[in-house]
């Protein structure tokens, strides 16, 4: 396990060094991703400014959820790049052969192949929004709340990472891009940026029981912010909900290993 983490870091550093060879392009991309996501955040702020709060959710409350989600999603984008480009760069070309002849976990080897450093701009935006929320809300950070927040963030990370793994796994069956899965990854991110209670019940149920998005984001964050929940969750369910993210990750991981057996390679 420790050796695996070491190898992961070593390969990541190699990938970062490879990218740094093109420094100018890198800086422009970071700036671009920062500006795009900043414009988005300002758009949301403008809406709130005009129409007021979302029920009991003030701008600052939503910003807390929004900033957290964006930080997690950007972190996943940065570190799951190898899975993101898996179909096009490893399957289509048969380069996955090269991964399979190495005596290390395929998950580590694929994940650490590439780093999407240009998504640092989105990460920065998330951090700024979160700082704004923290200043505006003045949350009473008890040990329990802090623990729940960390638990929720790591579970969100596992959740969104798992979706990237599923997307990559699909390319063992088809190398056509599967836009439908983007509705869960990017669509999921945008859904989770707002409190679940504003959506229709069927929608909320789907994102709780089928794809446990609400379990990793909305419920624990409601717990951290100590807000009443129209959906009826209690502090106990809010604290346990993030477990679903790790279960989801485990399920997706076994799907990956199942898919690997289907790998057909390409002619030499």
């Amino acid at each position: 396990m420790i050796a695996g983490v070491q190898l992961f870091c070593r390969l990541m550093m190699t990938a970062i060094r490879g990218q740094m060879q093109y420094r100018g392009a890198f800086l422009l991309m970071v700036l671009g991703s920062f500006l795009t996501s900043m414009v988005q955040a300002i758009g949301i702020w403008a809406l709130f400014d005009r129409f007021g709060n979302l029920g009991i959710w003030s701008v600052a409350h939503v910003a807390f959820l929004y900033g957290t989600i964006n930080i997690v999603f950007a972190s996943v984008d940065i570190t799951a790049r190898g899975f993101d480009t898996f179909g096009s760069s490893l399957i289509r070309t048969g380069q996955f052969d090269r991964v399979l002849v190495r005596p290390a976990s395929t998950v580590i080897l694929v994940a650490a192949r590439e780093v999407a450093l240009h998504k640092l701009g989105q990460l920065l935006q998330g951090i700024l929004v979160l700082i704004y929320a923290l200043v505006a809300l003045d949350i009473d950070w008890t040990l329990g709340r802090l623990a729940l927040y960390i638990f929720a963030v790591s579970s969100m990370y596992a959740f969104f990472y798992a979706i990237q793994i599923v997307r990559a796994t699909m390319s063992f069956w088809t190398i056509e891009t599967l836009e439908i899965l983007n509705t869960i990854s990017h669509g999921g991110m945008e859904t989770a940026q707002y409190p679940m209670s504003i959506y229709k019940e069927s929608f909320t149920n789907f994102f709780t029981y089928v794809v446990p998005l609400a379990c990793v984001a909305y419920f624990p964050i409601v717990g951290v912010l100590d807000m009443p929940d129209p959906l009826g969750s209690t502090l106990l369910t809010q604290s346990l909900a993030p477990l679903a993210g790790f279960v989801f990750f485990a399920v997706c991981l076994s799907f990956w290993f199942f898919g690997m057996k289907r790998y057909q390679s390409t002619g030499s």
Binding site: T14, G18, Q21, G94, Q95, D97, R98, L100, V101, R102, P103, A104, S105, S268
Partner: peptide, 22 residues
């Protein structure tokens, strides 16, 4: 797979196993 590939060496003449930029 992992125990196995640790004990063999493979060369594909058409495809490098090395890191392109390194």
């Amino acid at each position: 797979r992992r125990e196995h590939v640790a004990s063999i060496g493979v060369v594909f003449g058409q495809r490098t196993q090395l890191w392109w930029d390194l």
